[in-house]
């Protein structure tokens, strides 16, 4: 359903020749949109480069990529657009970067969200991953920098992680190109609906909050029957997140729940 608008256009001759495939040129017409999220300094841009063949500079500086980068690749005859979201530690505070990332995942509803993690700082990275899993059903976790992790004597149990998080987990070392093929396979399977996942949901049992959340989530469910992540929206509503309050009051959140949105809308909604 999500790709209907894209699929029609990918057939027309004007939709870019094969030469553009790995050039990372803005692919206006793509079948799928993939978002890349992750903490700063996790080698997210390296994963981006490995997937698109672009060479975006990635300094050893937390928070190097400020602007959102876009690129594309094609796989199994389908065109994918890859959006590199700003590196953030969380989706909760109101910094500009986090708002862009949050709004993109929530309102932009990418076909797949890849969360890049650093195995040496897994706790902090999982903090973001868990938050992402609260607002999307289609996520893949990519544990990057495995080469460094091995140098540190770390072993990561990918299957255990996948079981705990409820989403596919790929171990990778993007700088060496390790694991990129597996990541592509997972992206392909998830985008085409051949794999499904049940992301781990957090409970909200802090004090008397659960009742309020249930009440609001129930009301949201009545007002916007198809809306996913009701509990999360209810939580943000309760905390008074201005962007979410606005989206609920104007009914925008319901419209967004219905269909896939083009990048233009996302640009508009990330202000």
């Amino acid at each position: 359903m999500a790709q209907t608008s894209g699929a029609n256009c990918s057939n027309c001759p004007a939709s870019g020749g094969g030469k553009l495939e790995r050039l990372g040129v803005k692919l206006g017409q793509s079948d799928f949109v993939i978002a890349l999220a992750g903490n700063p300094n996790t080698g997210k841009s390296t994963v981006f480069n490995a997937l698109t063949g672009l060479r975006q500079h990635t300094g050893n500086w937390p928070g190097k990529t400020i602007a959102r980068a876009e690129g594309g690749f094609s796989l199994g005859g389908k065109k994918y657009k890859l959006v590199d979201l700003p590196g953030t530690y969380s989706l909760l505070s109101a910094t500009e970067d986090e708002e862009v990332a949050r709004n993109y995942i929530l309102f932009g509803r990418p076909d797949v969200t890849v969360v890049v993690l650093d195995p040496m700082r897994l706790e902090r990275n999982l903090n973001l991953a868990l938050q992402v899993l609260q607002i999307t059903e289609k996520a893949i976790v990519c544990v990057n920098l495995m080469d460094e992790a091995r140098a540190h004597g770390l072993e990561v149990d990918a299957r255990g992680l996948a079981r705990d998080l409820g989403v596919p987990v790929v171990l990778a070392a993007a700088r060496q190109g390790e694991g990129i093929q597996e990541l592509l396979t997972e992206i392909d399977a998830m985008a085409n609906g051949r794999s499904s996942c049940a992301p781990r949901k957090l409970s909200y049992d802090i004090g008397s909050v659960q009742e309020s959340i249930d009440e609001l989530a129930g009301a949201l469910g009545e007002a916007f029957p198809n809306m996913p992540h009701r509990e999360w929206v209810a939580l943000r509503l309760l905390e008074g997140d201005p962007r979410i309050v606005e989206a609920v009051a104007s009914g925008e959140i319901g419209v967004l729940a219905e269909d896939h949105v083009s990048t233009e809308t996302i640009n508009a909604c990330s202000r």
Partner: peptide, 15 residues
């Protein structure tokens, strides 16, 4: 969220 992350990390990463 952090407590949960710590739990998951501890279960799946070994030094």
């Amino acid at each position: 969220v952090y407590a949960e992350s710590a739990q998951i990390a501890e279960r799946n990463v070994q030094q």
